[in-house]
Amino acid sequence: MYSLQGIGKSFGGIDVLRDISLTLKPGQRLGITGANGVGKSTLINIATGFLKPDSGHIQLNNKTLTHQPAWAFAQAGIQRTFQNTRFLTTANLGEQLLLAARAPESKRRLTKLIELSGLQASLHLFPDEIPLPMLRKAEVIRGLAASPEVLFLDEPSAGLTTFELDQFGVFLQQNLGQKTALVVVEHRFDFMLMITDSVVEMQLNRGLVKRGADVKT
C-alpha cells in the first residue's frame, strides 16, 4: 500500500501542487493525465523522492518516506522511468541492467525479462546506439527487475509511433506481475485505456479528478 497524503509544493511563491492525495493498492494500475504545466512532472518527482514536498506525507506499507532521500525511495521499492530515458552512455546496456538486479532472484527475473523483450542482441551496445523503443523497454525492465512495489512511468509514449507504443503496452501488461502497482503519467488516452484500470486528470489548483466515464470497467 503506497499513499500520498495532502501533498503541496510551490515554486517561487506559486502553488504548483495543492493538497494532492493518492492511494495505490498492490497491482493497481492508475493513469494520470492533464494539460501541460499542471504539475504532473512535479508530482512524479515528489512521489519518487527527487523533490521534497512542502507539505504532506508519503507512505509505503505504513513506513513514512516523506523526508528520505531519493535513493531510499528506490531501495524501498519505488521505481521510475524518465521522460527521455536515462542511461549511462559510457557502459553497455547489459552491465547497466545487471546493476539494477543485485539479488539472485532479481537476476533470474531480469534474464527472463530480457528474453521476453528481445533485447539480448542489444546487450553489448551502448544506450546511444539502441533505438528508442528498445530503450523504453530496457528502462521498464530495469525498473521491474527487483519486483518493485510501485513503478512510475513518465510519458512513456513520447517519441514512439502508435505501433511501437502498442507493442510496449502489451509487453508491459504481460510482465508487470500481480504485486507491482503502476502509475502512468501520459497524454495518450488510448494507451492509458489499454494498460490502466482507472484514470485521473490533474487540473490546475483542483488536484486529481476522476475521469470515471471514460474509463473501462
Binding site: W71, Q75, R86, A100
Partner: peptide
C-alpha cells in the same frame, strides 16, 4: 540522479 533512481547512495 540516475544513480539515486537505482537505489545508490
Amino acid at each position: 540522479i540516475l544513480a539515486q533512481s537505482q537505489g545508490l547512495n
